[in-house]
């Protein structure tokens, strides 16, 4: 059987290296290269990327050097200390705690939760949507009823109830609790694309080539909807920063004594803080705006990378 194909051509083992080299010269640029080209063509996005990466690294590393329990101690001498002083770069809040330090640690907490939440909920949502859309029929029907059930649960109320019931919880359990409720949007989006994608001929061709369903789902269909996955994940990351922040703002997020962007913004609940002691809440608010803007710029570049018609980068081969 092997002989037959070999007999029909003049290509033999000796030509392999030469032909491979030839093929390599003609190869299309990889996705990473295209993406980098796109970033270079879009300056605001490039700035956003550096800003985001630098900022995340900074808050993670810097917060290692901050003694959180000590930082959270009340210091009556620092009561609403004005910003731009040597001890309090960004001033202090009603407890005399340094806003700058709280901002670093709070950002670390909020961003870590957002990253964890995005990874868990997106992974689950993508798998759910892919499987549901690919198999269709009864599988789809059953999985979509689970989806419907999750959708009708009032999300915020349930999270608040769970958080109040659980006696001891920390950032990790909070991330897990939030993940239960934030996979549905992604799964629905992915399912709708998978439904269309799994009707295409290349899926039929894979089936007739004897590829297993599992492989078809994750090796054939998933790369084809990767543009959707990347964009959705980036944007849901921006959204997820808001989830934890919002919950902490309401007072149901991280346990007391753990700083987060939400608790900092919650300072703005007090009208006096809004008018007089602006430094207690403004930096955190600005930070969130900048983060979300950066992420959406980056998301746009990602989308353009995956759609050849929208590309701006020069080196398109």
């Amino acid at each position: 059987m092997k002989r037959d194909i070999a007999d029909a051509t003049s290509i033999s083992k000796e030509d392999l290296a030469k032909l491979t080299k030839e093929a390599n010269e003609e190869a299309t640029p990889s996705r990473m290269k295209i993406m980098w080209g796109e970033f270079k063509a879009d300056k605001p996005a490039l700035v956003s990327l550096f800003l985001l990466v630098f900022f995340i690294l900074f808050v993670i590393i810097a917060s290692e050097f901050i003694d959180v329990p000590k930082m959270m101690e009340t210091n009556i001498m620092g009561y609403y200390n004005k910003p731009f002083s040597s001890d309090y770069w960004l001033g202090a809040d009603a407890g005399g705690r340094s806003i700058a330090k709280e901002l670093v640690v709070g950002s670390r907490n909020s961003i870590s939760i957002a990253i964890g939440l995005t990874i868990i909920s997106s992974t689950f949502g993508i798998c759910w949507g892919l499987v549901s859309g690919y198999f269709g029929g009864m599988v789809d029907l059953a999985m979509q009823r689970v989806y419907d059930f999750m959708m009708i649960i009032p999300m915020l109320m349930t999270i608040i109830v769970i958080v109040t019931i659980i006696p001891h919880y920390n950032a990790i359990t909070l991330t897990l609790i939030l993940s239960i409720f934030y996979w549905m949007g992604t799964s629905r989006l992915i399912r709708s694309r998978t439904l269309a994608e799994s009707q295409k001929d290349y899926v039929a061709a894979s089936k007739t080539s004897g590829t297993s369903n599992f492989k078809i789902i994750f090796r054939e269909i998933m790369p084809n909807i990767s543009s959707l996955i990347i964009v959705d994940t980036t944007l849901s990351f921006a959204e997820n920063i808001g989830v934890e922040t919002g919950l902490s703002f309401l007072g149901f997020g991280l346990p007391m004594g753990t700083p987060s962007l939400g608790t900092l913004i919650a300072n703005a609940n007090d009208p006096e803080n809004i008018t007089q002691y602006w430094w207690t809440w403004l930096p955190a608010a600005i930070e969130i705006i900048i983060l979300c803007l950066s992420i959406s710029y980056i998301g746009q570049v990602m989308r353009r990378t995956t759609n050849a018609a929208q590309r701006r980068g020069q080196d398109q081969k």
């Binding site: 029909a8 033999s12 083992k13 392999l16 032909l19 491979t20 093929a23 010269e25 003609e26 299309t28």
Partner: peptide, 22 residues
């Protein structure tokens, strides 16, 4: 495997530089 793919490409009259294209 790569050799077989190259041979198959040759049978249908395509060059080796097709190998890494989309």
């Amino acid at each position: 495997e790569k050799l077989r793919v190259l041979q198959l490409l040759d049978i249908v009259g395509l060059d080796a530089d097709a190998l890494y294209k989309y």
